[in-house]
Design a protein around this nucleic acid. Structure first.
Lengths: 336, 336
DNA sequence: CTGAAAGCGCTAACAA
DNA sequence: TTGTTAGCGCTTTCAG
């Protein structure tokens, strides 16, 4: 048994295909009696509308695409969940792709989404995707940047002030008495990483006697955090920082695993540690982690809202929404 | 500027649309010279193939649907990532939906996937979806169950022996000297939860003097774990279990947050704790967590492979792949 | 090797 | 209120 089409339903209900289409899309213009008859026919045939055909006719799909930097990062899964809910309310579904910080993956998903004629794209770009996004917009597929502001301000964006967040983290570390800070994160090509570092640097510059060291990582994940932790633990005590600011919680948790879990160094006594994102696991780590919270839920929701407005109203002025992060203090940065 | 179609490309390259389609799908039958000309035309128009039209013609899409129980559980995101990679190798993409243990959500995604005419569905069912899946299969959309065996063995499945895993956990707890065990997890309507509990019970039954208490939770997540931890901590000492087996790591981490982090109880001295899944964060929790590891990567990979075989070869005998879990010992269950 | 043409299932305009 | 029909972009015979 193959799938039933409008034609089959029409035949069974003794109406035309146009009428079937109408009960599907504008039931109010069809007589109650006919609606009923058609519904029964659909039921009997267990009719399921063919999205491809609908979309071909409409010119675009009822889906929006979302590309995040990392599927393993709870921050992004939170954003995605919020986006899904907001989209569902508006009758759209969300297709998620993870670039894992790779430009080629990002390009691949952008391609797929364009083939799918999605209604719009939500993107946390790896590098500078402006050219590609402009081309898509010219074809009627708008984009809004997520967790990142547009380099040339021609696209809407929903993000959190990473420079402020970075400053907040550094300030907190200094306030609790630390002077030899290290920023662990990378690659700096990721704008979020660069901004957080910049924020921290600006604060350190205002505090004579306080230093900030930069420890690069190949990716902002748990594994790289472990490596960085190992490297720091292997140093001579007088050569070690007394506080570490990790570019995100994944890195911080990795740091905790090698640096501190093995009992090599006491946290926060010997080294304080602060992360970023305040993911669900931050409060349950070896030492509960101080972190900078981002309103992940709000980000996803707002991004969808703006995107849909632009999709229905091309030529709208780009908007930039900038949320403020929030410091969440836990044991990992307790005063000495 | 709207999107260019095969017709535009054909016109520019001075060939027919049929030829354009051929260079897209069977370039080997087209002369090299023509291929070149068509490619140049595509380039100039930045042609992007319309998936909807292709799919309408083909009768099905180049995507497979995946419905997981929880988007917040790293175990499922691992399965999803593996599935995406395996699918990509075969020229398919994966659309992911999270039911969050809700039947209505699951039904919604099943509907969406059928409208999308996905090539097949990968599903961790909330309840018993057999009827619905059978109907989809009749229409040419096969399904394979993930992390769960089919109740009536008419569907292929890729899962891990949860009964064995539950037994493994209980045995380990007993071996390390605990006698008053508690199983924290729920709802038992989730098969995985029920199986792990059953495995633990069978082991306990073989050990006189050992008891197993069941502590129900509304969902297997961090929040519910916290609540359960609170409840246990509030009991009189002689009334408390000396070991807790959490149905998954999310619950275990939640337990850790209220039960142990607050310094109320020492782990593993006063209470031992074992989780399930061995997610990335298990090794970095307040007390590094002993857990039962599942081969999440293999699960996703194998499921895709079986699904695609069935899609291309309807009427194949259902297969059941059952992997064995593995005990990973960490500090949370150290011998007293 | 290439071209012409049918038709996948649907929606929206227009006619009745 | 309902029916008829064109056409969305693509693939695939079938002729040439």
């Amino acid at each position: 048994m193959a799938s039933a089409s409008v034609k089959d339903v029409a035949a069974l209900a003794q109406v035309s295909v146009g009428t079937v289409s109408n009960v599907l899309n504008r039931p109010e213009i069809v007589s109650a009696e006919t609606v009923e008859r058609v519904h029964q026919a659909m039921e009997k045939l267990s009719y399921v509308r063919n999205e491809a055909a609908r979309q071909l006719r409409l010119g675009h799909s009822q889906a929006i695409g979302l590309i995040t930097l990392s599927g393993a990062n709870p921050f992004f899964t939170d954003v995605a969940t919020a986006a899904e809910n907001a989209a569902a309310d508006a009758g759209y579904s969300v297709i998620v792709g993870n670039s894992n910080e790779r430009q080629d993956r990002e390009a691949g998903y952008l391609n797929l989404f364009e083939e799918l004629r999605v209604r719009g794209v939500l993107l946390s770009p790896v590098g500078d995707a402006a050219d590609r996004l402009r081309r898509m917009r010219d074809r009627g597929i708008p984009a809004v940047l997520v967790d990142r502001v547009s380099s040339d301000s021609t696209f809407s964006s929903v993000s959190v002030d990473d420079v402020a967040g970075g400053a907040m983290a550094a300030e907190h570390l200094i306030e609790t008495g630390r002077t030899r800070l290290a920023f662990v994160g990378g690659p700096v090509a990721i704008q979020q990483v660069a901004d957080r570092l910049a924020g921290a640097r600006s604060v350190v510059a205002r505090h004579p006697g306080v230093t900030l060291e930069f420890v690069d990582t190949a990716a902002p994940d748990v594994l790289e955090g472990r490596k960085a932790g190992q490297a720091i633990a292997d140093r001579a005590p007088e050569d070690r920082p007394d506080a570490v600011f990790a570019a995100n919680d994944l890195l911080a948790i990795g740091l905790l695993q090698t640096l501190f879990s093995d009992g090599k160094l006491a946290v926060p006594e010997e080294i304080a540690l602060i992360g970023y994102d305040d993911i669900q696991f931050a409060g349950a780590s070896v030492v509960p982690l101080t972190s900078i919270r981002q309103p992940s839920h709000l980000i996803g929701e707002t991004a969808v809202q703006i995107l849909l407005e632009e999709a229905e109203n091309p030529g709208l002025e780009p908007r930039r929404v900038l949320y403020q992060p929030e410091l969440v203090v836990r044991a990992s940065t307790a005063r000495r």
